[in-house]
């Protein structure tokens, strides 16, 4: 247990001395609602922002195809996808997060052992992300989103069962 044998130290500053409670400017429910609205406003330009990230992801995918599954390239793809995953839901593009999470999980399961069929699975996920951006599919993407996810899940299930 931390501290059982250690020294306990009072930090030199107390943040409570810098905050007041209530009154004008305090963070009440209305302020939180306004902040969420600001996020929604920002989400309007998210597709433009993430477009470059997905384009870079596509470049890494092309490199992976060329080098036959290099570990460093795969690691780059994982890191970039993980980054996109975190952004999607934050900007209210949940489908981007769902697809990215699925791709991250798939890459984790590979444990560095990449076969050509695996690269195809990765490519299909990157393509799906590009579809979401091209069609500006917000939230869960509705029927188009469901179809995309369903297709990707089938591809992964097929690959997991050993069928190419």
């Amino acid at each position: 247990m931390s501290g059982d044998d250690g020294v306990f130290i009072r930090p030199p500053t107390d943040i409570r001395n810098k905050v007041s409670v209530g009154g004008p400017g305090s963070v009440d429910q209305a302020a939180l609602a306004r902040a969420e609205k600001v996020i929604l406003d920002m989400a309007g330009s998210f597709v433009d922002m993430v477009h470059e990230d997905v384009a870079n992801l596509h470049k890494e995918l092309e490199a992976l195809k060329s080098n036959g599954g290099d570990a460093a390239t795969l690691d780059n793809i994982y890191r970039m996808t993980h980054d996109i995953k975190g952004q999607g839901g934050s900007f209210k593009y949940d489908l981007i997060t769902t697809i990215s999470r699925q791709l991250c999980n798939f890459i984790e399961e590979l444990k560095g052992n990449v076969k050509p069929a695996d690269i195809e699975v990765i490519a299909l996920h990157v393509d799906a992300l590009q579809v979401v951006i091209a069609q500006d599919l917000k939230g869960d993407g509705g029927d188009v989103g469901s179809n995309l996810l369903s297709g990707l899940e089938k591809v992964i299930a097929k690959r997991s069962s050993g069928q190419d």
């Binding site: 130290i9 930090p11 963070v27 934050s90």
Partner: peptide
């Protein structure tokens, strides 16, 4: 992630309301 205004404020509030001592062990 994904983050929201509510989740971020919740963590800030925790820091304000629950100041913690520091511990130094080996």
């Amino acid at each position: 992630k994904p983050i929201s205004a509510k989740s971020l404020y919740s963590r800030i509030r925790s820091i304000i309301e629950r100041p913690r001592e520091f511990v130094r062990t080996k």
